[in-house]
């Protein structure tokens, strides 16, 4: 009898995520992985490669492109899908594009609803996906902290937070009727710190925007916004200036605040995060409306 082997914290999280992904592959007819290009998606994709090795993940990636993502994100996305040999679907809400919806003209709430929430629902309906992985974590936000790993959605994509299915042990009930679906969160129990540690230990590629370097930014309403392309209208007196910044989360560039930083390597990022006194979602303009805004958005079909 040798000593009992104790798995580390990250090994336990990794195994749990892989177990969840395999359950989805086995229980559903037509799953998809929502790939948002950020660090959580990077970890989720890496775990999917592990879960099904030597097979490829038996589902495609789906990126809901609002057309306002950082250019470096799109380049990274395409390179990653090509390098790993996985299927990538890109969906854009063409009606929204035709109406000229954008964060500068319509504000963050309308933009997010049309180009993200509605676009996601369109894509799920078009392809008939019955399960969709998302990289959300419970430590991100209060309503996320309440969500099941297999989170049931009605045929109209709604979440009913007051009436969730009991979820016991690692037994995930994936049974649904036609039109209904399940959102699956394999990273539920990971924290931001776990994500970065895992990226470091597993050497997972991430978008360079996470690393600090001089970038053109303007300071607007207390948030540093990077001028990523010519679509950004500058207000009187605004002059882009080069500052050492990086991003803790990634999304649409007009809605994503940069943080001043000189952390240009993973160890430096991890160290900076350990010392940080603000949460990562602070840089997200869309969460600021009010505390319960995420719950409401989720009920309407947002991830």
């Amino acid at each position: 009898m040798s000593d009992p082997v104790r798995l580390t914290h990250l090994q336990r999280l990794e195994a749990e995520s892989i177990h969840i992904m395999r359950e989805v592959a086995a229980q559903f007819r037509n799953p998809v992985m929502l790939y948002s290009i950020g660090k959580d998606s990077a970890v989720m994709l890496h775990l999917a490669m592990k879960a099904f090795h030597p097979s490829k993940p038996p589902f495609p990636l789906l990126h809901v492109d609002t057309t306002w993502k950082f250019r470096e994100m799109i380049a990274f996305r395409d390179a990653r899908a090509r390098d790993l040999g996985v299927d990538l679907l890109v969906h854009i809400n063409e009606e929204g594009v035709a109406q000229g919806i954008g964060p500068f003209t319509h504000g963050s709430a309308v933009h997010t609803d049309v180009m993200k929430t509605q676009a996601l629902r369109q894509a799920l309906d078009r392809y008939g996906f019955d399960a969709a992985f998302g990289g959300a974590r419970r430590d991100e936000e209060k309503s996320r902290a309440k969500e099941r790993i297999f989170s049931f959605r009605s045929a109209s994509h709604r979440w009913d937070p007051k009436n969730q299915r009991p979820e016991l042990w690692n037994l995930y009930n994936g049974r649904i009727h036609k039109g209904e679906s399940i959102r699956v969160f394999p990273l539920s129990n990971w924290t931001e710190q776990d994500i970065w540690q895992y990226i470091y230990l597993e050497n997972i590629p991430v978008v360079p925007l996470y690393f600090a370097k001089p970038r053109p930014v303007v300071e607007r309403d207390g948030t540093l916004i990077m001028v990523d392309d010519e679509r950004m209208p500058l207000r009187p007196g605004e002059e882009p200036e080069m500052r050492w910044v990086r991003f803790r989360t990634l999304g649409c560039y007009p809605l994503t605040g940069a943080v001043e930083s000189t952390a240009a390597s993973l160890p430096e990022i991890i160290r900076e995060m350990l010392l940080s006194r603000t949460s990562e979602r602070q840089g997200r303009v869309i969460d600021h409306d009010q505390s319960a805004s995420m719950e409401r958005k989720k009920q309407e079909g947002y991830f």
């Binding site: 470091y200 952390a263 993973l266 430096e268 160290r271 350990l274």
Partner: peptide, 10 residues
């Protein structure tokens, strides 16, 4: 320095 510190921490 950051690497050393983080490695120790990890």
């Amino acid at each position: 320095a950051a690497t050393q510190e983080v490695l120790a921490y990890l």
